[in-house]
């Protein structure tokens, strides 16, 4: 594999993790956030500060990134206890701008020049700089986020998150502590994005504030929506598609965010559940094509 292909595969793996982590918040708990890049950035900067300023290893950096971002996520999730729906979207957007401004204007974080010379991970004297080793590491992490997402969907906590998404009052009426589960969702979602941020920072070797700007939040949300919100396959597919397509279609690179925006509008109009979402046109087609069996085994029977 050429270095170019490997780096695309690394980026795809990182964005798969980001999309899956946002999906826990949006798809499971129904808390739509346009500030996910802030968590991505907090993870990246935590890791960068620890390794560059305090000369810690990458491993300390990524663990701290997961931990710190999770804790910050609990606090940044507090607005969700007071506001819902479109107001929450605005609040998370605002948080994204504030976080980027802090990176930009606080000298400790390197200001607009960012932090550079981040070390590559090393294990037993072997460096992961570039190459297949880093790629493996990134995809192990993506696998981990998938595992967490899947596990959560199988537990009581996952079911409780669903009730928060569907009907908050009904959730409270069965005894679900809605505020607690909203904060859980923010913590898990943020922590996983934080780890992805660390992986990104050490791959590039530097961090700059604008990487984590609001447009990136739109990009990550687009991946979740285009793929299919609330499912596991959807965010993975969305991230692979939207992260790799512009690399192969060079002309699309400059219009990347225009493309994301246009896709979002089209999806909302024609396939709001996503290309591979529940009951989407493509997913139903794929199931018919490959299963050759009626979907009634899985789908609920109709009631007359």
């Amino acid at each position: 594999m050429s270095g170019y292909i490997i780096s695309i595969a690394v980026f795809v793996g990182i964005w798969v993790s980001l999309a899956l982590s946002l999906n826990i918040l949006v798809g499971y708990a129904g808390q739509v956030s346009l500030g996910h890049a802030a968590f991505f950035g907090i993870g990246a900067y935590t890791s960068a500060v620890l390794t560059v300023r305090y000369e810690q290893s990458f491993w300390v950096g990524i663990l701290a990134a997961i931990l710190v971002t999770g804790i910050v996520g609990a606090f940044l999730g507090l607005p969700s206890l007071r506001v819902r729906h479109d107001f929450l979207v605005l609040a998370t957007m605002g948080i994204n701008f504030v976080v980027v401004a802090i990176f930009k204007y606080v000298d400790f974080f390197g200001g607009a020049m960012g932090l550079v010379n981040l070390p590559a991970p090393a294990l037993l004297g072997l460096s992961f700089r570039g190459g297949p080793a880093y790629l493996t590491l990134v995809w192990i992490y993506a696998g981990l986020t998938l595992l967490v997402s899947w596990y959560l969907s199988q537990t009581w906590a996952g079911l409780a998150l669903n009730t928060v998404r569907i009907d908050e009052e009904a959730a409270e009426a069965v005894g679900v502590s809605v505020p607690r589960f909203k904060i859980y969702a923010f913590v898990i979602s943020a922590a996983l994005a934080g780890g992805a941020g660390s992986l990104y920072a050490h791959f590039i070797g530097s961090v700059f504030p604008d990487t984590f700007a609001f447009v990136e939040s739109i990009a990550i949300l687009s991946m979740v929506i285009v793929g299919g919100v609330g499912t596991l396959r959807g965010p993975i597919f969305g991230a692979v598609l939207l992260k790799s397509a512009p690399e192969f279609l060079r002309f699309a690179q400059d219009y990347r965010f225009t493309l994301y925006g246009a896709l979002l509008v089209l999806m909302m109009l024609f396939q709001p559940m996503g290309l591979l979402g529940k009951e989407s046109w493509l997913w139903n087609l794929a199931r018919r094509r490959f299963r050759r069996a009626p979907s009634s085994a899985l789908a609920p029977e109709e009631v007359s």
Binding site: I166, D167, E169, A173
Partner: peptide, 12 residues
């Protein structure tokens, strides 16, 4: 509580 309008978790 059995709420007004049932308020079930329809997708479940």
């Amino acid at each position: 509580l059995a709420p007004e309008g049932a308020r079930l978790f329809g997708d479940l």
